[in-house]
Amino acid sequence: MAPFVDVNGGSVEGGGMEYEKGRKFSVEEVAAHKNTNDAWIVVDGEVYDVTAFLETHPGGAEVILEHLKESDVGQLMRGATSTFDHAHSEAAFGMLKDYHVGSLDGIYCADSTAMHPAKEVDDKSKKFMVDLGKPLVFQVGHLGDGYQEWVHQPIVQKESPRFFASDFMESTTKTLWWVVPLIWIPVVCWLQVIAIRRGFPVDKFITTMPLGFLIWSLVEYILHRFLFHVKTTSYWGNTLHYLLHGCHHKHPMDGYRLVFPPTFATMFAIPLYGMINLMFSRTWAPSVFGFGLLGYVMYDVTHYFIHHGSAANDFTRNLKRFHLNHHFKMREDSYGITSPLWDYVFGTLPAKLKYESSVLN
């Protein structure tokens, strides 16, 4: 059950029971809440019921469960007790307040949510407050200079926020992840058929496949760094940026607005195909573009996995760490999704963290 914290006093709910706000818990009481259906953690002497947060934890539920039996994870969250950098962002500590159920008895420590406050939005943005209970798209533009700060204070929940009052407009903003391979893989195959009909030798696929992947990885990096992270302050600039990419940073666990809608992807695919036609011969162009399109499919599916899948090995674990670092800690770095190659080339890979970078893992 998700906890409700009454900031004006009262009670909170945790583990299916109601507790008086500010209650002191013994070590034994906290230890009784250490399973997947009833998960409590202690952070700097403060007790939090994170049961409802397990499925939405960006690093995966298994990361929390792995440390569930530790007496206090405050130092771990600050990155002070591990070979790997587990340092959580200020925004991550700010999320804790929603799960607070009390304090650990016998230990005096200032409230951890006060010790690690989420950054306040710039004063300029406080002239307008976004109402999360109303359609968001036509609100965010009013934030002006404070939009960039607001949009990078993530709300980690699985529920999708409302974008538009119109049900039709709302439906156009949502895409299930499996729609991407369902629509585009047949197009990839069709393009290879076109290339063969134009006389392209099949044995040359061994050349056009990695070439197409390489081109896509560069396009992916350029779009993410220079378009998706363009700084905006005007009403329409903020509004368009929120629709394009800002919504993903504000609601990183929204599974319906994580992959590109097909119509939106087509807007980028058409000019890209035109560029490849200028760079390659009439015979080679369809094959190169087709494998570049396959690279895009792999990108979107990988991106979805990073946010909603569980790491099965070191490779996938490092991939998740690298991207979550971008979301929660260093948004000016780590622009590659499927590969850090171009971050290495253009110097946007965090030198200190590299593949050991981690925010919530």
Results as ranks from 00 to 15, higher is better:
residue 275 M to Q: 12
residue 161 P to K: 00
residue 87 A to K: 14
residue 165 A to C: 00
residue 283 T to Y: 10
residue 199 G to E: 13
residue 23 R to P: 06
residue 116 H to N: 04
residue 118 A to M: 09
residue 71 S to N: 08
residue 31 A to R: 13
residue 339 S to L: 14
residue 281 S to E: 15
residue 69 K to V: 01
residue 228 F to V: 05
residue 145 D to N: 09
residue 237 G to V: 03
residue 292 G to L: 05
residue 66 E to D: 11
residue 140 V to A: 06
residue 43 V to F: 01
residue 89 S to Q: 11
residue 244 L to G: 05
residue 192 Q to Y: 10
residue 344 Y to M: 12
residue 209 M to F: 15
residue 95 M to S: 08
residue 77 M to F: 01
residue 119 K to C: 03
residue 288 V to K: 12
residue 3 P to K: 01
residue 62 E to Y: 04
residue 323 H to F: 06
residue 23 R to E: 00
residue 281 S to I: 12
residue 231 K to D: 12
residue 234 S to H: 01
residue 350 P to M: 06
residue 359 V to N: 15
residue 20 E to W: 03
residue 19 Y to M: 00
residue 207 T to I: 08
residue 55 E to Y: 00
residue 11 S to P: 08
residue 169 M to N: 08
residue 217 S to M: 11
residue 279 M to F: 08
residue 305 F to H: 14
residue 125 S to G: 11
residue 183 I to F: 05
residue 256 Y to L: 10
residue 340 P to N: 02
residue 236 W to S: 07
residue 204 K to M: 07
residue 195 A to E: 10
residue 106 G to M: 12
residue 205 F to Y: 10
residue 258 L to N: 12
residue 170 E to R: 00
residue 342 W to H: 09
residue 23 R to H: 11
residue 5 V to W: 07
residue 126 K to A: 04
residue 78 R to L: 10
residue 201 P to M: 00
residue 236 W to L: 08
residue 268 F to Q: 07
residue 187 V to K: 03
residue 346 F to I: 11
residue 14 G to P: 01
residue 348 T to Q: 08
residue 48 Y to P: 01
residue 293 L to G: 04
residue 264 F to T: 13
residue 337 I to W: 04
residue 130 V to D: 06
residue 256 Y to G: 06
residue 351 A to L: 12
residue 52 A to Y: 02
residue 25 F to S: 03
residue 37 N to L: 03
residue 318 N to C: 14
residue 266 T to F: 02
residue 162 R to F: 00
residue 125 S to D: 15
residue 317 R to D: 14
residue 1 M to V: 01
residue 139 Q to V: 00
residue 324 L to N: 07
residue 19 Y to I: 03
residue 185 I to G: 01
residue 239 T to Y: 06
residue 248 H to T: 05
residue 352 K to D: 12
residue 125 S to C: 13
residue 307 H to N: 11
residue 235 Y to V: 02
residue 139 Q to E: 02
residue 189 C to Q: 13
residue 104 L to I: 11
residue 200 F to Q: 10
residue 83 T to A: 09
residue 248 H to S: 10
residue 304 Y to H: 10
residue 57 H to V: 05
residue 71 S to D: 14
residue 7 V to Q: 15
residue 79 G to Y: 07
residue 238 N to L: 04
residue 329 K to S: 14
residue 246 G to D: 04
residue 166 S to L: 02
residue 324 L to P: 06
residue 223 L to S: 09
residue 21 K to M: 14
residue 85 D to N: 15
residue 84 F to E: 10
residue 24 K to P: 12
residue 72 D to F: 00
residue 244 L to I: 09
residue 171 S to C: 00
residue 81 T to C: 01
residue 176 L to W: 05
residue 334 S to M: 02
residue 237 G to R: 08
residue 94 G to D: 05
residue 301 V to E: 08
residue 338 T to I: 13
residue 15 G to W: 06
residue 100 H to D: 11
residue 245 H to S: 14
residue 112 S to F: 02
residue 81 T to K: 03
residue 171 S to Q: 06
